[in-house]
Structure formats: structure tokens, C-alpha cells
Design a protein around this nucleic acid. Sequence first.
DNA 1: CTTGACCTTCCAGTCGAGTGGAAGGATTAC
DNA 2: GTAATCCTTCCACTCGACTGGAAGGTCAAG
Lengths: 142, 142
Amino acid sequence: MLIGQLAERAGVNPKTIRYYEEIGILAAPERTHAGYRVYDESNVELVTFVKAAQRLGLRLDEIKEILAFRERGEQPCAYVRDVLRREVGEIDDRIAELQRLRDELSALDRLADAEPGPGDGDSGPCPLIGHARESPRTARTP
Amino acid sequence: MLIGQLAERAGVNPKTIRYYEEIGILAAPERTHAGYRVYDESNVELVTFVKAAQRLGLRLDEIKEILAFRERGEQPCAYVRDVLRREVGEIDDRIAELQRLRDELSALDRLADAEPGPGDGDSGPCPLIGHARESPRTARTP
DNA sequence: CTTGACCTTCCAGTCGAGTGGAAGGATTAC
DNA sequence: GTAATCCTTCCACTCGACTGGAAGGTCAAG
């Protein structure tokens, strides 16, 4: 199959396939006489795998690592588990922070309902955010 | 105070201050005779505020919006609450996904302990990730 | 034989939030 | 007087994962 078919079957852009090849996620495939890339079912499988791994929050360089394990005939699960555990740890922090924020937010929701009116002198632009002053960093879902 | 002091007091790079000015987060300050930017306490407050808002996951353009509310003497809390609620909603999805992943992960941890050994034929590069095939997208904490 | 849908490469741009560095002016300390 | 340190502007680069577009080759259908 050609790049367009692979892309469609895996649900990605053909450009993405070439990009994966460029960064070493996919091996350079056979070409037709005309120079067209030729793929088979295993490539569909592979791209689908990459996308699944991405959904778990893995970066392409990590996925590449994992694929290298396979290359060497090793089970990458230990590595994968490390990566995922790290990820889960990071997310735990974020979850905790968000939980805290959510509690604060609903508390302030009630507060704001009870005590409305304009004015911006005392606690910065928004008292909501003033509460976050000492909290650790929290990043955004991209 | 000059830009270096402000930067240090707010815990950021001087470049960041200039960047904030460039994108309209900070107003252009007074200058000395020599063209140096001059700041006061309120700027420390402001940059600290921006950083706090970022910790809550707000983007700079959202923070700019919030500061514009203040400019107009309005309470931005309604807007802030909308933004935060959206954020919380997004995070909820991510939390749910992660919770699912974590359950899966610990289940597979036990599975992997019970049934070790190499081999890469049956379920893709890693059975851990094979499980994620049908899951919705999950993005990474940056 | 031409049209249109593919394919190729290469170059450049996107988003967000900065950061690095060069070239040059100002101020302070010794 | 001169060296160190700060400041200025401007331009370009970073990260990650693509995506857009131009210029050109190829292939099957009509």
C-alpha cells in the first residue's frame, strides 16, 4: 500500500508518516520503481501503536526507545512501566493541585455569590487568583 | 527599581519582563534619562500575579484578558471562573483517563510479575500499550 | 493526450512562553 | 580612566509534533 492508504488506515496525515520516518520512528520502507513508499499491514499496526502510546502520554522519543527494545527482541514493558509510573506521578501532583483548586473554586463561587460588587483594591486583580499565590506549579493540558 | 530588581523579586528572567511588555501583559513603564525601565512595588505584585495565574493553568492571553477587566474596574471573577471551570473540565477528563490507566497499569504490573519472559509476536511491541488502543486521547503535562 | 489524483523533496511555519546572544549605551566602583 | 555590570534593541532560536505549500514526477482513466 502507498503512503496515502497507510495514513488513512492509521488515521493520520501522510505528512505524519514521512515525519515519523524522518525522526526514526518508522524505518525507511521499500520504494516502487517511481520512488513511492510501499507499506504493508505491519506498518498500519506500527503507526496505530505509536498513536496508542501517544494517547498514554508518551513522547515520540520515548516511543522510539520502546520500538528499539522490540528491535533487540526485548520486552520493553519494564521501561514502559517506568515511563508510565513517572507520568502517573506527575499527573498525581497535577490531580492533587487541581483538586485543591476545585475546592477553592467552589468555595469562592459561594463567596462570590454571597458578596458581589465591583472594586479592585485589596487583593489583586482577582481574589480567586490571589489564593493561588503560594501554590506549586501547575501546567496545562495542551 | 530597574528591570533586574523586578525580575529578581518576582523570580523571573528580565527577558520575561520585556516579553510581557511586548505582548501587552505589562504596560510600558517610565524610563530613566538613559532609557532604563523603572518599576515599583505594584509591578512586583503584578508579575507575581501573572505567575500565580499561570500556576493555575491560565495562558498569558487569558491573563491579559483578566488584567483588562481590572483596567475597566470590573471584577474579572466571572470570567476567571469560566476559564477555570473549563480548565477543570478538561482536567477531569484527563484525571479519569489517568485513573483508568493507573488501574490498568497496576493490573499489568501484577500480570507481568506473574507471567514473565521475552517474546514480541502476539500483541504488538508491548502488551501494556496494546491495552490503550481504543482509549480517547490523553495529552501530557508539559 | 490530457486531466486529476496521487506521489516526491525541500523549505518554512504553527503554537506558547520564553531564552540566547550580539552590538552598543549608561552607571558605578575602584 | 577603565573595568565590570547593568541596561537597551533586535533577531533568531528553543521545544514537540506536526502541517502547509511550492515545484515537479507518475500513474490510471477517459
